[in-house]
Design a protein around this nucleic acid. Structure first.
Lengths: 112, 112
DNA sequence: GCACATAGGGATAAAAAAGTCACTATTATG
DNA sequence: CATAATAGTGACTTTTTTATCCCTATGTGC
C-alpha cells in the first residue's frame, strides 16, 4: 500500500504517512508478532493464520522500504531470511500498545 | 469497514478491533479535523479535499456505530447534522498525535 | 418553475487490495 | 527419481473498498 492521495495532496502530513505505512491487512499483526526479536517468513506463515506467502512478502517488502523492518538474507541452503524491527519499528510497537489499550474500551460494546 | 477476519479469528484482539475501527480512507482525517468540537457533513466535504458525500456518510456512520463519533440531527430546514467526538474518540486523538510524531520520523527518508 | 443549499441513499462502476496457482532454485532424505 | 523444506515471483482471479451518478425531500431567492 503505497503512499496515495488522501486528505491533503500538497503538503506532507506526518499522520498520513504514518497511517499509510501501517495500512495493510497484515502489517500490524506482523509488527505485533515480531516483537520477540527476529522472525523468518515461514514463521509468520505459521503464526499468522491464513496469510498467503505472496501477500506476506508484499507487506514485508513495503515495511522494509518504509524503514520499519530490517531484512537479513543468509546465504545458506535451504535459504534463510530473518526480519527484525528497526528502531522506528520498535517505536511503533509502543504506539500499538496504546492502540491496544484503546481497543479494549471498544470491546464490551462490540461484543455482539 | 466492519470487523472482518484478520490474524486471529477465535479470540478478540483489542488491537485488531482498534485498527479495524480506523481502517477507512477518511476516518483518521475525519477525527483529525473534528478536534475543534463539532462539524457538519458539509464542512467535512469542504475541508477534506475530495471526499465524496456518499463515502463520507458511510465512514461517519461506521464511526458512529463504533462509538467514536456522536451524531446530532436538528429538525430544521435546511437540515442540520453535527458530528462530534465521543470520549472514546477524544482518546483516539491522543494516540493520533503520537502516530503523527512517529510519522515525522519517516518523512526525511520518504521525501523523494 | 429553476437553482441552490441542506442531508441522505440506491444502483452501479471503478479502483485497490488481497488471494490463488504455478512455477523458479537448491540441498537433503527416502 | 520423487518429496520436502526454504524463499521468491509472474500471471491471474476474487474480494473489498472507494467513487460516480442520479434520485428523494424541504425552504429560500430569482
Amino acid at each position: 500500500m503505497k503512499t496515495k492521495e488522501r486528505s491533503s495532496e500538497n503538503k506532507i502530513c506526518p499522520l498520513e504517512v504514518a497511517v499509510n505505512s501501517i495500512s495493510g491487512k497484515w502489517k500490524v499483526p506482523i509488527v505485533w508478532q515480531i516483537n520477540e526479536g527476529k522472525k523468518r517468513p515461514s514463521e509468520f506463515l505459521r503464526g499468522i493464520a491464513k496469510v498467503d506467502r505472496r501477500v506476506l512478502n508484499q507487506q514485508l517488502k513495503e515495511m522494509e522500504q518504509d524503514g520499519i523492518l530490517t531484512k537479513v538474507s543468509f546465504n545458506e541452503l535451504p535459504p534463510r531470511v530473518e526480519y527484525s524491527l528497526t528502531e522506528l519499528g520498535e517505536k511503533l510497537v509502543t504506539i500499538l500498545w496504546m492502540l491496544n489499550d484503546w481497543g479494549k474500551l471498544m470491546i464490551p460494546a462490540e461484543e455482539d
